[in-house]
Design a binder for these strands. Structure first.
Length: 646
RNA sequence: GCUGCUGUAGCUCAGCUGGUAGAGCACCUCCUUGGUAAGGAGGAGGUCAUGGGUUCGAAUCCCAUCAGCAGCUCCA
């Protein structure tokens, strides 16, 4: 739990569990998969957008087939759980050896044989006594039975205790597994070529690193071989766009072991993209009434004691520097600084809303295993702002931020995104500030804002910050997974901590609300996202090099330089290749660097004061007067067009 | 932080069970002045991540550290 904290650094895990089928639904006689509507009706918190009952059953059933093959290969392996996940399934075993590629090949072949055997999935209800006898060799299953009997789900979380819990076992061929199902009727419904065992990794029993380390067999699984191939192609495409790979190839950023993990350096080209982004968003903010400030990265520890961060967020902060007299900490957030700005003089109700913005640099201690690339770092710059508002201004200010986000995303070419109203879980009084009225009214204000902004949104319980509700904007990554970039959070808590007030029209002191918001997210995050969105081929207004000039022979060098100077004078980003390579090689080079416009100049162009325009899409626009190209570029860059020749 | 895998030239990678290092691209020089994705020849470049250990001998085996990747956990 943290205070005043953006959770925009949150990344989705690789695998998303699909298997929280509510008991109420599963115990129906049909043994059919719950529909999405049924899941929602049963209070399921997370129903994936691409939830597919058929795929669920296929994956769940394949998990059993895999378990059979694994236990045949390694009789000492103790099965634990094997749920379907996004794209496939996994199965965890307590296993003392590391399976080799050969083992995985054997297991795959064996699975195919089992599938071709057309074995029925036979379901049977058992009592816990029977279960304990049946699984007496399988300690993890025994623990599961114990938990189920005591009203826990298979992750050891307490689950609402239905009537007498029903235990079921499913059997295919020789393999029996404790499982609530449902499954396909028979392995005949599985495509022997529709799955791929991808890797074996480490995991822990019930996800707790204090527990026994397990071996997790991962597999991706689909209804058909064609679907599997399509998925593998997507995975390949995602790997090609990986911002770490593209970032190195296009010289956008670097890492150095000497500097340390989680501290990327932006190279000149990456820095150019960032500078453009910063200018872009601060211009929009200025127009929207924000005031930009600068504040220091170090502060006395006591600042964060007042804010409450020290108590709640200490583990994510770098340890203080002890100077004897005082202790200084690197800031993990900018909110306290902006609060001090609010407090720098008395505030009247006429002053509000006050919108303080900063491209604030923050330092967070992330555990060594999680940092990487630009998307999870230890030093980051947030496109941060804090709005200090009167209660009746909350809705309007949220609308303002929502519109700002829509505008920014449109320019950035981010088209697939969705809004989520993140609410508290009303049943969980411990996790959230216990103030029913505050939650009710503030959640309604956010709902009003979403409606006024005219956006489609969904509501999600148990996703709020502990002090207040928020609106999260989720974008899709290359694999279609959702990731939160922008967020708007309502916070009554920090104003209380710092005792913020304004003088109202009736001459009484009132407490303002604070809104934390990040539009661009952190610069690092957004850069990573955009690199992957465009596979490095940025739209011209963002491209680090917009124009490359390729002279055909030495005698065209002066003219090339002349053209470059003209473009530079117009504030365009130009690179000229005066090397002695052949023009074909130069063109290839610039194209691989994803430079949007390549201008070839030779005798004809020199004569005519023209440039031959080649787009990175390989389209050739032919020779045009320089002025005409400048006009094209001005139009494209000025309008932040996403195409090169609109 | 935990588990597993990995670390050889700027990049991508070879280097079998230990016998003191290789390719392609990039770079440099020379030749070539070529019209829309790689012109030719030659050259230079490595304390095999770092530090210990085993051994007559270590890129190769062992340990530690650092870094990368995947997963877990975290990011509430």
């Amino acid at each position: 739990m943290s205070i005043g904290e953006y959770d925009c650094s949150r990344r989705p895990g690789r695998f998303r569990l699909y298997d929280r089928v509510p008991r109420a639904v599963e115990s129906t006689e049909s043994a059919d998969m719950a529909s999405e509507a049924e899941l929602k009706a049963a209070g399921e918190k997370y129903v994936p957008k691409d939830y597919d009952p058929t795929l669920y059953k296929i994956r769940h059933s394949l998990a059993h087939v895999l378990a059979q093959a694994v236990t045949e290969r390694f009789p000492q392996a103790k099965p634990t759980i094997g749920p379907p996940v996004e794209f496939g399934f996994y199965y965890d075993f307590d296993l003392d050896v590391s399976p080799s590629d050969e083992d995985l090949g054997w297991i795959t072949d064996r699975m195919r044989k089992i599938i071709r055997g057309k074995h029925a999935f036979k379901v049977r209800e058992i009592t816990s006594v029977e279960g304990k006898e049946l699984f007496k060799e399988q300690p993890y299953k025994l623990e599961l039975i114990e938990g189920l009997v005591n009203g826990q789900d298979e992750y050891g979380n307490s689950a609402p205790l239905a009537d007498a819990p029903t235990l079921t076992v499913y059997q295919q061929d020789t393999f029996v597994d404790l499982c609530r199902g449902p499954h396909v009727d028979s392995t005949a419904a599985l495509d022997p070529k529709g799955f791929k065992v991808t890797q074996v990794t480490g995991s822990y029993w019930r996800g707790d690193e204090k527990n026994k380390a397990l071996k997790r067999f991962h597999a991706t699984a689909w209804a058909s071989e064609a679907d599997l191939k399509a998925h593998l192609a997507r995975v390949e495409e995602a790997a090609k766009r990986d911002h770490r790979k593209v970032g190195r190839e296009l010289e956008l950023f670097m890492n150095s072991p000497l500097l340390g993990a989680g501290f990327p350096i932006l190279l000149p080209k990456g820095s150019t993209v960032r500078r453009i982004l910063e200018q872009f968003i601060t211009d929009y903010e200025r127009a929207a009434g924000y005031q930009h400030v600068y504040s220091p990265d170090l502060a006395k520890r006591s600042l964060y004691e007042v804010s409450g961060h020290w108590e709640h967020y200490k583990d994510n902060m770098f340890p203080p520097m002890d100077l004897g007299e005082e202790e200084l900490v690197l800031r993990p957030m900018n909110c306290p600084h902006h609060i001090l700005i609010y407090q720098s003089r008395p505030r009247s109700y006429r002053d509000l809303p006050i919108r303080i913005a900063e491209l604030g640099k923050m330092y967070r201690y992330e555990r060594s295993g999680v940092v990487g690339g630009l998307s999870r770092v230890r030093c980051m710059t947030l496109n941060d702002a804090h709005l200090f508002v009167r209660p009746e201004q909350i809705t309007e200010e949220f609308v303002g931020v929502l519109n700002l986000i829509k505008k920014a995303y449109a320019d950035l070419g981010i088209t697939e995104y969705s809004f989520r109203l993140s609410k508290r879980d009303p049943k969980n009084k411990v996790k959230y500030v216990d103030d029913d009225l505050m939650w009710k009214t503030s959640q309604q204000k956010l709902r009003d804002a979403l409606q006024q902004a005219g956006v489609v949104y969904r509501e999600a319980e148990d996703e709020a910050a502990f002090y207040g509700p928020k609106v999260d904007i989720e974008v899709k990554d290359v694999m279609g997974r959702e990731e939160t970039l922008s967020t708007i959070q309502l916070d009554p808590h920090l104003p209380k901590q710092f005792g913020l007030v304004y003088k109202d029209s009736d001459d009484t002191e009132k407490r303002p609300f604070m809104i934390h918001r990040g539009v661009i997210s952190t610069m690092e995050r957004m850069l990573a996202y955009l690199i992957e969105l465009y596979a490095g081929a940025f739209p011209p207004w963002l491209a680090p090099v917009q124009v490359a000039i390729v002279p055909i022979a030495d005698r065209h060098f002066d003219y090339a330089k002349q053209v470059a100077a003209q473009l530079l004078a117009k504030d365009f980003r130009v690179e000229t290749d005066l090397g002695d390579k052949r023009m074909n090689a130069k063109i290839r080079e610039f194209q691989l660097q994803k430079v949007p416009y390549i201008l070839v100049v030779g005798d004809k162009e020199m004569e005519a004061g023209a440039v031959a325009i080649r787009l990175r899409t390989e389209e050739n626009l032919g020779a045009k007067p320089v002025a005409e190209f400048v006009a094209l570029l001005e139009k494209v860059v000025g309008s932040r067009a996403l195409t090169l020749n609109p």
